[in-house]
Write a protein that binds this DNA or RNA. Structure first.
Lengths: 208, 208
DNA sequence: AATTGTGAACCTCTTCACAGCT
DNA sequence: AGCTGTGAAGAGGTTCACAATT
């Protein structure tokens, strides 16, 4: 294996895709799978799958393939999916409250359990049973509720300011829904989702 | 310029970032900008910006920089942002209805104007003034309303089936919110947004 | 016989660095 | 003097192809 090499972030997102597919296979009582079959199901190449897994070790058997249950448990370990992580959303506007209702954000290992806003009309209310706190309570709630991921869903203009506040609390993982690029220290991981950007890009292809 | 070369999709999303920033600069009455300054504001390198623009032509003046208004109008033309494109959302569940309320999806050149669902309780209702149609009306509404982009926000299990239906209507641009990879003909452009995937990936960094 | 693990080749995108333009 | 446009170098990720393994 090549654990010492730098692992591409795209490998990590694919590992997540593999895990999802393997769980579906396990539910269908399928016990073994080859990289070629898994590739077929995920629209990825067999070599890609083997390379990705190989960053973390050898999980398959030559001539046989991968044991579905074993690979699920390895991937869960690699991806940190054996524990439950608490998540907070900053901004309870249209996007923030949608995320609070989104079932994809309530999973075994993901627990969206707090929201923050500056609007007094929203503070101390709940959305989908998730309490909304004033932004001034950020540091305290993050500490008390042991939150490890913050989702930033505030208006574009407040993005950087909020990111600074979040970083100051010691949070190391941010999912940023504002279209601005955040400046964070090296040890903080940011993933960006630019929803209107994704739509806007499509218009490029429409004029071609 | 190098228009003949294949243009990376990442270049297109950056052009969109430049456009956004330039519009902000124009609002601040700034007339000229260099690639270095624009790079500072967008967290990108000056060389990257010049390379990206160079795929489409020469827009700057040596020793001077770029004229903000001129570059805005060039980028709008390149990105197809001079016309208004009609958009439909398929799936009016928690995610779909959030997108209907999301202000980022109502812009000068983007007009989200129809939604589809199979639930009779939702059909013929409206969300944020956007009418919800039965899925059986898909082809007709897409034709009548001149829709050119479809946003797929249905449950994972229905993703591929819906994508096939959408492709059959002649749509060439899809924004896919399901976590499954869609199989579409070569001339159809798909962009994928895997919301829970983005969160799930972050847990990887938490155990490191 | 089938399928993995993996070095090497390949391809794509980014950064460098500087000639040339204003 | 300053900044662009761009060929060349570099970095990073993917695919190829095959020896090794069960």
């Amino acid at each position: 294996m090549e654990q010492n090499k730098r692992i591409p972030e795209s490998t990590i997102s694919r590992l997540n895709v593999y895990l999802r597919e393997l769980i579906a296979l396990a539910e269908m009582k399928i016990k073994r799978i080859s990289s070629a079959e898994l590739g077929e199901r995920t629209n990825l190449s067999d070599a890609q799958i083997r390379k990705d897994l190989n960053y973390f070790g050898s999980f398959g058997k030559s001539g046989v393939g991968y044991d579905v249950k074993e690979l699920i448990s390895s991937l869960k370990r690699i991806l940190g999916r054996n524990e439950t992580w608490n998540i907070a959303v900053i901004g309870a506007g249209s996007l923030g409250s949608a995320l609070m209702k989104y079932p994809g954000f309530k999973k075994q290992s993901l627990n969206l359990c707090a929201a923050f806003d500056i609007d007094p009309k929203k503070i101390n209310k709940e959305i989908n049973k998730i309490p909304i706190y004033g932004l001034d309570k950020l540091a305290r709630v993050i500490r008390d509720k042991k939150i490890s991921i913050c989702v930033i869903a505030v208006p574009q203009t407040k993005g950087r300011e909020i990111a600074d506040k979040v970083v100051k609390t010691g949070i190391k993982c941010i999912l940023n829904f504002t279209p601005v690029s955040l400046n964070v220290p090296e040890d903080v991981v940011v993933r960006n989702v630019d929803l209107s950007g994704e739509l806007e890009i499509l218009t490029y292809f429409l004029v071609r």
